[in-house]
Write a protein that binds this DNA or RNA. Structure first.
Lengths: 193, 193
DNA sequence: CGATTCTTTGAAAACAGTCAATCTGTGTGG
DNA sequence: CCACACAGATTGACTGTTTTCAAAGAATCG
């Protein structure tokens, strides 16, 4: 189970993981299994935990005054599911995170995370790289959202993230892109011409 | 000039800055003055530098096929102007960064930045906090963009970032929000009722 | 003042959202 | 194995919002 995480760290850090490091990681990250639709975090809670996804798929979303869900993030294997805002600011989360498929996670609290970053240099490196990539991805998505019409946004997304297109139903992709499922359906029809 | 940066570090780190640290920072960060409209980074270049804004205001934007500018970020005092994507991936930038007002910067290369993060623990802390906040802000903005209609998005923005409203003209704010200047003008008229 | 930049307005067109109905595929329980 | 329920996708008609284009009105600066 923890092997996936070791691999992930190797891919993102130049520094090595010693046997003791691995033991510490195994002792700290708790395996957890979520069934489809089960919550990992609910709006209003404080998201003290982060989960590394070993197998499965999850979504993070807000719910507006009309009860409509807006997908903020989609996660699959080798992604971290967490609400960074809530965890770092200690504020109630404005988002829900739940399992879209049955999912195997490795869970840590934020405090444990900080501890591991201190004690395991390679882990510190990994979280830095991860933060950097998350930020870059977020900026790209933002740029696409403010710059492009719905159609082009979908094309870009489908191009850059085919795994998500295969894995999640259209209405979630639509919400992720900030459009309705009907609009996405029409865009796709057009695109086939 | 460098005082502003020391203050910034104090505010974001728990660890202290020694006299040697300060000397190192002064030796590394180069003061630079940009006149209004002058480029800090141009599309296609590799953005190896980051600039800490001591005084002034800047903008980061992409230009689409039709020649329309899309504001990706607005920066003022105590913000960092840089294209993280280009700097970390060593890829040509898709953005331009220029001075909106005459601006005083403290400039470092990415390599120097990494070196300082290593040598000065408080600086390492600061960049971590900064990355975290940037990511959180970016996620919030994304959520607002995909969840809200133009009107609500503007209200939220005006509420949370009054400094920007005062400092930048409406057409830049509109672009930042992903709408046209005409639409923003009409929204504001409505809002006054 | 004259030039430039910024903001507002109007009218038409393009775009996206809403609501309601239908269609499709999948899986579950009887 | 079939029938039914359920989740997802599509379609049509309509409404509402946003963009586009063009023009004119403020505001600011050298």
């Amino acid at each position: 189970m923890h092997e996936a995480l070791f691999t992930y760290i190797h891919q993102h850090a130049t520094l090595p993981l010693t046997a003791e490091h691995k033991a510490l990681i195994e002792a700290t990250f708790q395996p957890k299994r979520l069934r489809k639709k089960q919550y990992f975090l609910q709006e209003g809670d404080i998201g003290k935990q982060a989960g590394f996804i070993v197998k499965g798929a999850m979504r993070q979303y807000s719910v507006d005054d009309k009860g409509v869900e807006h997908i903020v993030n989609l996660f699959i294997e080798n992604w971290w599911a967490s609400d960074r805002e809530s965890a770092t600011m200690h504020t109630p989360s404005r988002y829900n995170i739940d399992a879209w498929e049955d999912t195997d996670l490795l869970v840590v609290t934020r405090a444990e995370m900080l501890e591991l970053m201190e004690k395991i240099p390679a882990f510190g490196q990994t979280t830095r790289v991860m933060d950097e990539r998350n930020f870059i991805a977020s900026q790209r998505r933002l740029n696409s959202t403010i710059s492009n019409a719905a159609e082009k946004r979908y094309e870009e997304f489908a191009e850059n993230h085919p795994q998500f297109i295969e894995r999640f139903p259209q209405h979630l992709i639509a919400s992720f892109l900030g459009i309705t499922k009907e609009t996405l359906s029409r865009i796709r029809k057009q695109a086939m011409r």
